[in-house]
Write a protein that binds this DNA or RNA. Structure first.
Lengths: 254, 254
DNA sequence: AACCTGTATGTATTAAATACATACTCAATA
DNA sequence: TATTGAGTATGTATTTAATACATACAGGTT
């Protein structure tokens, strides 16, 4: 059976099983090599990249659907996952352009709905624990540097931008890092994560002071060896205190 | 024609004209008498209250739909309107209970979808400019004190809570008030707005200092007369500076 | 004229944010 | 084995922002 037939069958099942006209798009952030990364998929038989996404089963909570989609793509289920915006523009992208790019010469492969509203989720995941996995529609799944994304399909560049903006705002009143860093990390690594997300440099003395004052990390005796320099101490998050800080937030206004 | 027939006809039109399975719910906040208010609708021939809401035309942006719904309910079009969350639980409420409460003995009045995902918007409006207007499905539209809402239909109490939480968080990094207060207002009025939203009292000396330091309000020569006490000065927002503060935000983390 | 109510405002104290420079350690190299 | 370099660790002084707190004023009422 060739790809087109398979595709038609696939969409037939989606149409029967899932809510029509509503989809989920996921911006999966990871951190590696001092860069914030996003997990992207390359669509079958094309060079076109887009966000992982999917549809919602008729009797499935949207949050659960997002979790399912993420687990399929990353292989992990312990992650920070948050809805951040619903994209409901009447024309979100040029349909003709998309069908060309995806080599769907006509849209008859499925009963393509007039328009699709998409619910955006972003996830923060530990880069080292992820096994990127392509799905039925795609050939390749891999990390891209968030500052250097290609032109994505649909309105996915826009969706990434909104996710990133949300992440930045969130950083100002919630701790971030638990799901982006490995269990043990050094202070400079944590700092670089913050610097990357905020896109500006921070003073290491003040950063260290502030972070430790928050009381959500604890220093271990252990140090990381191997570098041609003073060995940095390792830290880890205090899970309980981190969780509390997440819930309570730290409102700036007083 | 009796209400049931009209209802069936109404929903028939909705089903033809609108996206299925997706709705909008609006939490419209106003401020009056030192209380934060929410605009609610009473469903026809019942004592049941719920949020204003509606459906999205097939070729209409969701944002535009929300604006349309709001304008229909409040009569004003200059307002602060923001999407805050999409409610996609697989079971958002007890359908049987709802159909009883609304006196829809069977659901055959329409092809009721299996489940509805609802996009929540909240609006901040100038209480004094609003003319609450009921719609086809409802008998009455009026303001309710946000701290004293009745048990609402569907999951609307939950939706109000999430809206309120969003509003509180937003207050910590964005200015709020332009759309909730009349053009000219006194410092104590502004303070009471903040106190109401934050649900705690603030020191008037520090509040005044901080607010004026933000540079988004300007004091007028004019004073408000009539009270049996020292006449308070009137202030108004500097629209341009307010707009900038809105856009830029004031991230707390540094 | 005395009183009441809500408004206006300044200062001292504390806490947080910022700015800034030097010493250390380990590995690589000369 | 002495030197160098890169990256890490840390403390203090300064500035700014947040907090705590009390009294005088104006306009109407009695």
């Amino acid at each position: 059976m060739d790809y087109k037939k398979q595709l038609a069958e696939f969409f037939k099942e989606v149409d029967e099983r899932c809510i029509l006209g509503l989809s989920i798009d996921c911006v999966i952030f990871g951190f590696y090599d001092n860069q914030l990364k996003v997990l992207l998929l390359r669509w079958k038989q094309t060079e076109e990249w887009g966000l992982p996404g999917g549809f919602i089963y008729k009797k499935e909570s949207v949050d659960v659907a997002a979790q399912r989609i993420l687990e399929e793509r990353t292989g992990i289920n312990e992650l920070f996952l948050q809805q951040f915006h619903t994209f409901g523009e009447d024309v979100r992208y040029n349909r003709q352009e998309i069908s060309q790019k995806l080599n769907w010469p006509d849209l008859s492969t499925r009963r393509w709905p007039d328009r699709t509203v998409s619910i955006g989720y972003f996830a923060l995941v530990d880069f080292s624990k992820v096994t990127p996995a392509a799905d039925f529609l795609t050939d390749e799944c891999r990390w891209w540097d968030v500052e250097n994304l290609p032109a994505l399909l649909f309105d996915h560049n826009h969706i990434v931008e909104v996710a990133l903006k949300t992440l930045r705002v969130q950083l100002s009143w919630q701790p971030i890092g638990y799901n982006l860093l490995p269990e043990k990390f050094t202070m400079p690594e944590l700092q670089r994560l913050y610097e990357t997300i905020l896109n500006r440099s921070l003073d290491p003395r003040n950063f260290s002071k502030k972070m430790r004052a928050l009381g959500i990390i604890e220093r271990l005796e252990e140090q990381r060896r191997g570098g041609a320099f003073k060995s940095p101490y390792l830290f880890r998050f205090n899970k309980e205190k981190y969780r509390k800080a997440l819930q309570e937030g730290n409102l700036a206004f007083s």
